[in-house]
Simulated assay, not measured.
Amino acid sequence: MSYRALATRPLLTLAGVTVAARLPVAMAPLAVVLLVRERPGGYSIGATLAAVYVVGEVVGASVLGPRLKAVRARPALAAGLAVGALAFAGLALCAGAHPVVLGALAALAGGAPGAVPGGTRALLTSMVEESAVAKAFSADAILSYGIWAASPAVATGLALGLDPVVPMYLAAGLMAAAGAGLWALPAGWPADEGDRGGVSMARTLAAAWPLYVTGAAGLSLLALAELVLPALLEQRGVAVGWAGPLLAAYSVAAAVGAYVYGLRTWPGNPSRQSLVLLVGVSLVVAAIALVPEMLWIGVGLVVAGVCQSGVQIARSLSLKEALPKSAFAAGYSLMYASVGAGYAASAVLAGVVQSVAAPSTAILWGAGMCLGLVGVAAVGERGKLVPSGL
């Protein structure tokens, strides 16, 4: 099956909803920094608001995702997007308010739509034939990396070129549009509530814990690339302005990697692929910390991007195999939460290490943490994953 076969009206509609729902999420951390940067201590306040937003995402995905009802998920997803849209609009309207007010709005903007990533992924799974799921996940990854590559430029261009509140209004409008777009899609996805064999939802989700660990490990590396790269370039005597183009190259490489992954069937099962690729990405990131020239840093980021997209797709396929249909949305939501937790943990580790050591050392510590998580997941996957027929 070719990628062109995915270009049906329902799937293109879902792609539009996905873009409208994800672009605000991708813009938000940078947009909240730009919103308050001109205040006294604005960058510190902005960093705190960005962290609060991410925490809101993690909590929202963990709490709301498992509560989605498969066959009638649409009202809950639309409500979450509507509240998120109002919260983003509130950030724009209350830009001069006390930081506590902005923090509450940021947490709501991140948390209210927390079930949407898992819900849309479950919807995508139900809208394609089983043989096309891997290719659909690849296309979804290409879309995601394109969004993440474009979001910094969109947020910065609007905030600096027009007004710092404009990205917030755009995010509000996009989330509202995504909520409206859901009504052009199926109301949910088929699920036999008895397909867990009497096992509770909590136990079903908990049995897939090694996959959530790989999710945390995967994005911990992205956090290193985004947060430590400017300091690493400065350490190497390279202009910090190169960080933007290098990260853009990473995103483009990841999109290419996602495309290539979907072209054929690869050796090994998705779980094995995910672990092997994660080890590869960890080693490449560690090498980036050691090479002295920007050219090799760029090459390393490109290789890491290609492998990272394979990790993301293989992880999604593994989760689909490990869970029954009735747990898809909850499982994808918990994966989303674990990814956010991994990003946050790596950011904290990088900050702590950089306070006492060089940026290159922080990257090495982060790569070591990722390899440790991969080891834990590998041990767990030897006997703890639930068969897909549970």
Rank of each mutant, 00 (worst) to 15 (best):
E38I: 10
K325N: 13
S220P: 05
L64M: 06
V165W: 05
R315N: 05
T8M: 08
P29G: 08
V59L: 15
Q235S: 09
L162G: 09
S316H: 08
L30H: 11
A136V: 05
G237H: 09
L295W: 09
V166T: 01
G380L: 13
V291A: 12
W365M: 13
S355L: 11
G342L: 01
V240S: 11
S144P: 12
I313K: 03
V348W: 15
L246Q: 07
R22D: 02
A78L: 04
L371P: 03
P324F: 00
S271A: 15
A314I: 07
V128N: 04
G173V: 11
A239H: 13
S318T: 11
W266A: 06
S151E: 08
K384H: 12
A171Q: 07
A73V: 02
G60A: 10
S309T: 02
L385E: 01
K325Q: 14
L229P: 00
E226F: 01
L227E: 07
L174S: 04
R72V: 05
A92L: 06
V83G: 02
V199C: 11
V339N: 09
L49F: 09
A5R: 12
G42V: 03
S388H: 14
G90A: 08
M168G: 05
V58M: 11
Q235A: 04
L211I: 13
I297C: 01
C307F: 12
Y336I: 06
P267K: 12
P10I: 15
T8Q: 10
A31N: 06
G173F: 15
G114C: 08
G41D: 14
S144N: 15
V302E: 05
L247R: 02
Y332P: 01
L205S: 02
A122F: 01
R9V: 15
A176E: 10
L158G: 01
V276Y: 12
A136I: 00
G331S: 10
L301V: 11
Q354L: 15
L93A: 14
G257V: 00
S338C: 12
G241I: 12
P270F: 12
P164E: 08
L390A: 14
A358C: 14
G118M: 03
R37T: 09
K135G: 07
L211N: 07
Y145N: 14
A314S: 10
A362Y: 02
L385R: 03
V25R: 00
Y53V: 04
L319P: 01
T18D: 08
V154D: 03
A50C: 05
G257H: 00
A207L: 13
L364V: 04
P167N: 07
P267T: 11
L108A: 14
G342Y: 04
V386W: 06
L247I: 11
M294R: 13
A61G: 07
A79I: 10
G375P: 08
D163V: 04
L160V: 11
Y332I: 09
V376E: 09
V379H: 10
V166M: 09
V302Q: 06
I313G: 02
L317V: 12
E193N: 13
A122W: 01
G114M: 12
P359T: 06
T125V: 15
L158E: 05
A61Y: 07
A155Y: 05
A28C: 10
P10V: 11
S126A: 14
G280T: 08
G342I: 01
L160M: 07
A73I: 05
W183T: 10
P66R: 06
V386K: 05
A243E: 12
W189A: 00
E293C: 14
V228Q: 00
V252H: 06
V116Y: 06
